[in-house]
């Protein structure tokens, strides 16, 4: 590992998008992923202030390496809320998706101001992490939470939406060496240590140059 917080990639040179025109992707998948890659950068559901807070929350929950274009996590969440997508259930006391986000962001800022005299986005990474850890363990009492439990908001709304948004993106798929979309072709080699030629090779399973070469030609 490098000490600058940028680990060596586990699947060097692998980009799941090189398979996009091949037999592992069908037309409907290409359409859906293209739409995702074209997600508008500006919010349509969140206010600019809220959007900034969402981006700083996302940067702590799914911190991204520099040196590559970041996954636009806040924009993907905004798109989902703009569309009105729902999980289909919510704990007692928690409002529906959109309202829960609005209320939770307000409460988070209220907590940040109470503890550090500034809004969440402005308090620095270490304090942000501290606040998120308190939210996760339910150790927050601002009246801004209303009937919603901070723990529920963390686990069932905020962190959930952040994680789902990040791992909906091809950049994240490449990072973890997932084969990605797989219809119609599917897979053939299923056993221990078996890799189809259209799957990523892992660093350490051969020499680095060779692994990179394999991964560039996955398709």
């Amino acid at each position: 590992m490098h000490d600058r917080g940028r680990p060596e990639p586990r699947y060097p040179g692998y980009d799941v998008l090189t398979k996009r025109q091949g037999p592992s992707w069908n037309e409907q998948t290409r359409r859906v992923v293209s739409q995702r890659l074209a997600v508008p950068a500006e919010p349509r559901f969140f206010t600019p202030d809220e959007f900034r807070t969402v981006a700083s929350v996302a940067a702590r929950i799914v911190p991204q390496p520099d040196g590559r274009p970041p996954v636009p996590v806040a924009a993907l969440i905004d798109e989902k809320l703009f569309r009105g997508a729902s999980d289909g259930y919510r704990p007692e006391g928690m409002p529906r998706e959109r309202e829960a986000w609005r209320q939770g962001l307000q409460a988070l800022d209220a907590e940040a101001k109470a503890a550090y005299g500034a809004a969440f986005h402005a308090i620095g990474a270490a304090r942000q992490d501290g606040l998120l850890a308190r939210m996760q363990s339910g150790d927050m009492t601002s009246p801004a939470w209303g009937r919603m439990s901070p723990q529920d908001f963390f686990k069932r709304r905020m962190a959930r939406d952040v994680v789902l948004a990040y791992y909906a993106h091809p950049t994240a798929w490449s990072e973890i060496g997932w084969g990605g979309p797989a219809s119609p072709r599917g897979y053939v080699r299923l056993d221990f240590d078996e890799r189809d030629p259209w799957e990523a090779a892992e660093a350490g399973s051969g020499d680095a140059v060779e692994v990179r070469r394999i991964n560039r030609h996955v398709g």
């Binding site: 998948t29 859906v32 999980d87 919510r90 219809s183």
Partner: peptide, 25 residues
């Protein structure tokens, strides 16, 4: 109609509003 995509395919689920409670919601 089916994409190879987890997010897109949430269209298969019943996601109308429901409330969960109890000791193990």
């Amino acid at each position: 109609d089916f994409a190879s995509d987890e997010s897109e395919q949430t269209k298969l689920y019943w996601t109308d509003d429901r409330i969960v409670d109890g000791a193990n919601p």
